[in-house]
Design a protein around this nucleic acid. Structure first.
Ligand SMILES: [Mn+2]
Ligand SMILES: [Mn+2]
Ligand SMILES: [Zn+2]
Ligand SMILES: [Zn+2]
Lengths: 133, 133
DNA sequence: GCTTACTTGCGAATGAGTCGCAACTTTAGA
DNA sequence: TCTAAAGTTGCGACTCATTCGCAAGTAAGC
C-alpha cells in the first residue's frame, strides 16, 4: 500500500459522487504528485481486490467510466437522459436476483451491475407539461 | 430508411452474437459500400428508436461496446472472466425488478442493463481442480 | 427544374486508456 | 547495515474506438 494508492482509495471512499479516472486524477494531484498511468493501474488493482466498482452509467457524459468505493450495501443506478442525474437505489430484489443467478446458473458472481437509463420523475413531469402546450 | 440503415439492421437482427461497431461495419462492407462513421451514426439512431440495445459486457474484449437487436424477450448477460463466454439469461425477476423501479421511483425506463461478471460453471470447476494440485 | 432537408463518405481530429522503460522504493536475506 | 530482487512510479509516446466538419450525393415536395 503505497502513498499513491492510499490517497486514491481515500478520495473514492470519501466521495459520494461517481468519479471518472480523470477527475479522480485531478483531485489526487491536489494532494500528491501522481500520474494518470498510476491512477489507471491503481483502479485496476482496487477493482481486482473488490474494493471498488467500475460503472458505465450509460456513458451519459462521454466515453469514460466511473468508479465508486464498494460499501456494505449493494445498490444499482438510474441515469436520467434529461437532466443527467444519477440515482442510487437499494432494493432487496436486486440482491435476490443475484443470488438466484448464482445458484441457478452455477455462476460465481464477482460484480453485478444494473444500470437503468430513462427519465426521472422531474424530467417526465416537465416533458408532459411542455407537450401540453 | 436508406440502404445502409436497412443492411445494418438486417445484420443485427440475424446475428445471434453481440457485435461491436467494427465487426458490424466489416460485415456490412461485404454487402454494400458503407463507412465507419455511418455505422456509428446509424447505431445511435437505432438505439434512439428503441430497435437495438447497446451493451458494455464488462468491456471483456477491449474498449468497445456491443449491440444487439431488441427482441420481445428481455434478458440480461453473464460475462465469464475466465473463458470470455457471454450467457444470456431470461428471468421473470428481472422484468419484475424493472417494473418495481419504474413504479416506486417514478422513473420512466428506456433501457435496463443488468450485466454480471464472474466465472461460469466450467471455469469455476477448472479453477477448483487446479488449486487442488 | 429548383429548393430544401437529410444522409453519406472521407479524412482529420479527439481523447480515453495503454505501454515501454528507466528511475525510484520497498522488501528480505546475507 | 549492505545488497540484490521485486514491485511501483512518472514520463512520453502510442493506440485505437469514436466523433467531427464538410462537400458531395440523394430523396421529396412544389
Ligand atoms: Mn462502457
Ligand atoms: Mn443478448
Ligand atoms: Zn432527470
Ligand atoms: Zn468461463
Amino acid at each position: 500500500m503505497t502513498r499513491q494508492r492510499r490517497v486514491l482509495l481515500e478520495i473514492l471512499d470519501q466521495s459520494d459522487a461517481h468519479l471518472d479516472a480523470r477527475t479522480l486524477c485531478e483531485r489526487a494531484q491536489k494532494k500528491i504528485d501522481i500520474d494518470r498511468a498510476t491512477v489507471y493501474r491503481t483502479l485496476e488493482l482496487l477493482k481486482q481486490k473488490g474494493l471498488i466498482d467500475e460503472l458505465d452509467l450509460m456513458h451519459l457524459h462521454g466515453e469514460m467510466h466511473y468508479f465508486e468505493a464498494r460499501t456494505g450495501s449493494e445498490h444499482f443506478h438510474l441515469a436520467c437522459y434529461g437532466c443527467g442525474k444519477i440515482t442510487e437505489v437499494e432494493d432487496g430484489m436486486f440482491e435476490r436476483l443475484k443470488k438466484h443467478v448464482a445458484l441457478h446458473e452455477g455462476f460465481k458472481v464477482q460484480t453485478a451491475r444494473l444500470e437503468i437509463g430513462g427519465y426521472c420523475r422531474a424530467c417526465t413531469a416537465q416533458h408532459k407539461k411542455k407537450s401540453r402546450v
